[in-house]
Amino acid sequence: MATRARTYAGEHIDVNYEVRRCIHAEECVRHLREVFDNKKTPWVQPDNGTADAIADTIHHCPSGALHYVRKDGGATEPIPAHNTIQVDEDGPLYVRGNVTVINGKGDEILHDTRVALCRCGESNNKPFCDNSHIESHFEASAR
């Protein structure tokens, strides 16, 4: 899940960030700017917030670029009881749940609770969204 991820270590919680899956939805920045601030270096500062607040914020990350490891005995990320697929207008499929992605050979490439899947065909990180739909002016209704 956290392959190729960079770890920002905190006293009570470590934050793992997989840059290739980040599509800059900025849910983290909006929810908890003290910790997630893309104008600061490093942009993640886990000791500026509580582990509970950081975990709750990361649950909102729609791409699955952010994950965490609790060091304080707090709960791990819950697997949603229901699987949902949200069709984003002119954008990706946001999948949430107990999600396994496998390739055509049957090999597992990801197991996660949050994934953004490319639906414009232009991503350089298929099957994951990398925001190429913006540059390619992908148009598709959300239904």
């Binding site: 949902t84 107990n98 999600v99 396994t100 992605v101 496998i102 055509g104 994934v115 099957p127």
Partner: peptide, 24 residues
């Protein structure tokens, strides 16, 4: 139950498992 997404080569996503589609 889990959701399985099969990414076929040059093919669509085949999604298996109980799921709900949400609009925007």
């Amino acid at each position: 139950g889990g959701l399985t997404i099969i990414v076929g080569t040059n093919d669509s996503y085949e999604i298996k498992g109980p799921f709900t589609i949400l609009n925007d």
